[in-house]
Design a protein around this nucleic acid. Sequence first.
DNA 1: GCTGCTCTGCGTAGACCATACGCAGAACTA
DNA 2: TAGTTCTGCGTATGGTCTACGCAGAGCAGC
Lengths: 253, 253
Amino acid sequence: MAAQTDDSGPTLPAAIESAWGLRDRPPKGPRPGLSVPAIVDAAVRVADADGLAAVSMSRVAKELGSATMALYRHVGSKDELLTLMLDAGYGPPPGPPPPGTDWRAGLTRWAWAEHDVLRHRTWLLHVPITGPPVTPHQLGWLEDGLRCLDGTALAEGEKMSTLLLVTGYVRNEATLTAQLAEGSRAAGADPSELMRSYGRLVARLIDPARFPALQRVLAAGVLSQDDDPDDEFTFGLDRILDGIDALIRRRSA
Amino acid sequence: MAAQTDDSGPTLPAAIESAWGLRDRPPKGPRPGLSVPAIVDAAVRVADADGLAAVSMSRVAKELGSATMALYRHVGSKDELLTLMLDAGYGPPPGPPPPGTDWRAGLTRWAWAEHDVLRHRTWLLHVPITGPPVTPHQLGWLEDGLRCLDGTALAEGEKMSTLLLVTGYVRNEATLTAQLAEGSRAAGADPSELMRSYGRLVARLIDPARFPALQRVLAAGVLSQDDDPDDEFTFGLDRILDGIDALIRRRSA
DNA sequence: GCTGCTCTGCGTAGACCATACGCAGAACTA
DNA sequence: TAGTTCTGCGTATGGTCTACGCAGAGCAGC
């Protein structure tokens, strides 16, 4: 029992250890024609072009001009490849906040940086997360977020919870926006038109007696007017930061 | 262009229309041995027992004692079945807030109700969302959430954004908790032990010079002490509701 | 009661997918 | 030059969803 949890922590897959620069190539044997970074790059290229669903081992191998099974020499499983794709897809963190930035401006910048990455690479949202972050870039993002909260009165655990809250919000908002965009691409209409027709559909389905509040929202034209998705993002982010601000003030007092 | 978006809105899959009670069974032909609710129930049973990954068309058919392809008479695709499973899995909404409840208590109850559902049926988190909610229970949850905000000074659109914010938070928090639980089940250790060994792993990987803030968090023992997951949930929820409270006060003033 | 239409159930088969296993040969060490 | 070790890859297995088409059940009209 608990066999894998000695003082070195849980065993890390070989490909991820190599991402940290540990791992010495044995001097024997033929030169590898493939490498972990090359495989991950190819997989990212496929995902950028045709989405995460198009990323199969054979497709990635084809992209590299090699055979399917050759990949398994460098990557333990498809899940492992996906973890590495997540790291590569996020890319390097946005950097620590410029000196003199207050925590709110810093976190806003941090959140927008993740927002921009996710808007550009929506497939990142579809990578199934299997555990806490262990790859270099992922932990780099965490570090840069924590630095924004340096000097606030929050406890260390509260800083962590705060970042979890913000990044969760960003991911969630990006997911909703991406779904809308994907749906509109599938239907061949632009997003605001799709939203309007969704409003009409709901209005047709619901019984006003059982759904009065929803009815009122529809009547107010909430789904009919097009609003800038960036405004929606800003709304939620400001609410969350207001909530954190309240906590910081309380802790400072 | 925009062919599917006439005044009836986008075309709704047949199985979902039947969930709204529209759809008259044609009087001809043999009695169907299967029905949409029976199929969805069987699929939910499989997911409850063995997780969403175990839900294949053949497995659901086996559960019903019928052939795989028989299901496709009632359900257009697996995605459609998943949408119906989502609706059935959430179940009926928690009901409108009791009279005299203020908005904050109401939303707290609403959020905890979703939290409880997701803790009980973690597979709901793995159902890929393909668009805005169109099923009866889903819209029922939305309705009950909106009623909590009746009487506040928020605009209708702000109410909607608020609910999106809260439900997104609940889903995100549930996802993280479920991942931790799943990982600990796989490793054979309890969650807090897994968290501790994760902390040791990160401490081993990072260079303190490049990750000072992260180092400090680890040194403070953030990942070493076990904290009640419910407390973590409450922390984030309270921050969000504080932020909404600030907005409501501003609107009321 | 008989004919014919329509709808149900299901069998077959195709196109994918991840990956376990084992062999041929390349490149380095001694 | 001999031995070792690692790379690349071919084959094969068992799983997935679902397109297509056939047999037969039940009801409408005559």
